[in-house]
Structures are given as structure tokens and as C-alpha cells.
């Protein structure tokens, strides 16, 4: 197998230019799809038979929750690549992703709380789904804090990568919590196998929002990785040439 593309991708100058080029190709579709998704979800979709208009918060809550877990998984894979193959750029990607994941987790918890109050009758309960999602937020915050507390970049990278890997165990717990234990939170509406338990006129804006949030994350990640590379390679000659071009 030819690994040239992989090694090329791992080179900071190459990735720096590539990220700069693809940022608008992620950002503009994300913006467009968020507008379409929100219009579809908040205006076109009919109200729910049980929850009325309150169910519409799902169009922000569910994609955020999905991203909070997706970003953690991606960050852990980047951290593992950084640890095993000693690729500095992979650590830069993990470092850039953590705050974005923390924000998506925060949005998930806040929108869930705002939804829970009128529907369930409570802002917060210590059920397995909510508690494990809160632990995810603490993991992200722990990673950010750990990285910030170690001055030596390489040691900070390695320590954060190990913590990121330890936290991976929380991902299946969050996903399956509603099946493994009795929880207040309901089960999954959209599953990989089987028919989604939501009608199509309510489903399509949700799917649009899923794609939109992913593209949005892609754009933010590209911008943030560029920032990380600028900071990490500030003494490199290629960067001086790049910036004075």
C-alpha cells in the first residue's frame, strides 16, 4: 500500500495550506444547510402529537449530542495516531478539537435541560444518560486543563492523548445508557438498523441539521488546526516564507 498521501497529510506545511483551501468549502455549505434545516424544523415540520411545538428543540439538541460524541471519538483516534506514530499534526488536531467538543456537549446539556423542564417536569435528573453526558463535558474540560497545565508541548501532547484514550470508555456508555439501565431519557429515534420512529416530514430537517453540524465542525476544526500549527511551528522557516508570500 502506498502511504505517501498519509505522510504528506501529516506534514504541517501541506496540511496548513490544504486546511486553508477547504475551509470555505465546508463553511458555506454548513451555513446553507443550517438555514434550510432550521427553516424546515422550526417552520415546515408539523408539531408533535404529544409534545406540540416543544419537540422542535430536537433539531439542535440531537445533532449537538451526536457531535459531542463524534468529536470525542475523532479526537481519541487522532490522539492514538499521535501516540503510536509520533505524528505531531495528529496531536495538533486533537488539541484543536477538544474545545469545540466541549461546546457541543455544553449545548446538548443546556438544550436538553430546557426541553426537560416543560416535557418531563424537571431541569435535571441523575439518570444514566444525563450523568454520562455530563461526565463527557468534564472529560473535555479535563483535557483542556491538562494540556494547559503542562508547558512542555510534547509531554502535554502525550499526557492529553492518554487521558483522551481513557475517556473513550464513556462513549458506548452514553450511547447505550438508555438501553442498559432504566432512564428518564427515551431511547434512540434514529437507529442504524430499522425504521426511524419519526415521520418523514419531521425527519428530513433533522438529517439536514446532522450534516450541517458536521460540516460546521469541519470548518471550525480547519481554522483551529491552522491556529495550532501557527503556534507550534512559529520558529519554522516554511511558515515565515508562507506568511511573507
Amino acid at each position: 500500500m502506498n502511504w505517501t498521501w498519509f505522510h504528506k497529510l501529516a506534514s504541517p506545511p501541506h496540511f496548513y495550506r490544504l486546511a486553508g483551501r477547504i475551509t470555505p468549502w465546508l463553511g458555506w455549505p454548513a451555513f446553507l444547510l443550517i438555514v434550510i434545516g432550521l427553516y424546515g424544523g422550526l417552520v415546515l415540520a408539523p408539531p408533535d402529537y404529544q409534545q406540540g411545538d416543544a419537540f422542535r428543540i430536537v433539531y439542535v439538541h440531537a445533532p449537538s449530542a451526536w457531535m459531542s460524541m463524534f468529536i470525542y471519538g475523532m479526537m481519541a483516534i487522532a490522539a492514538a495516531i499521535g501516540l503510536i506514530w509520533r505524528i505531531k499534526l495528529a496531536h495538533a488536531v486533537a488539541a484543536a478539537a477538544a474545545p469545540v467538543g466541549a461546546w457541543f456537549t455544553f449545548v446538548t446539556l443546556v438544550t436538553g435541560s430546557l426541553w426537560g423542564r416543560p416535557m418531563w417536569g424537571t431541569w435535571w435528573q441523575w439518570d444514566a444518560r444525563m450523568t454520562s453526558e455530563l461526565i463527557l463535558l468534564f472529560l473535555y474540560l479535563g483535557l483542556i486543563a491538562l494540556r494547559a497545565s503542562i508547558d512542555d508541548r510534547e509531554r502535554a501532547d502525550r499526557a492529553s492523548a492518554v487521558l483522551a484514550l481513557v475517556g473513550v470508555v464513556n462513549l458506548p456508555i452514553i450511547h447505550y445508557s438508555v438501553y442498559w439501565w432504566n432512564t428518564l431519557h427515551q431511547g434512540s429515534t434514529i437507529t442504524k438498523f430499522g425504521k426511524p420512529s419519526i415521520t418523514f416530514d419531521m425527519l428530513w430537517p433533522l438529517l439536514v441539521m446532522f450534516v450541517a453540524f458536521k460540516l460546521f465542525f469541519g470548518m471550525v476544526l480547519m481554522l483551529r488546526v491552522r491556529g495550532e500549527v501557527l503556534r507550534r511551528e512559529r520558529d519554522a522557516s516554511w511558515l515565515r516564507e508562507e506568511l511573507t508570500r
Binding site: 408539531p47 408533535d48 418531563w120
Partner: peptide, 22 residues
């Protein structure tokens, strides 16, 4: 001392629910 409602994962418009006798 506290009563919470637990809803399920099904979402549908009222007309659909009516036709399904939910």
C-alpha cells in the same frame, strides 16, 4: 413527592397519531 412524565422516542404529527389511535 415528585412526578415526572416519561415520553417515548416516537415523533409524529397529530393527524398521524390519530389515524394510529395513539
Amino acid at each position: 413527592d415528585e412526578v415526572l412524565a416519561k415520553h417515548d422516542e416516537n415523533y409524529m404529527p397529530p393527524e398521524v397519531a390519530e389515524s394510529l389511535h395513539m
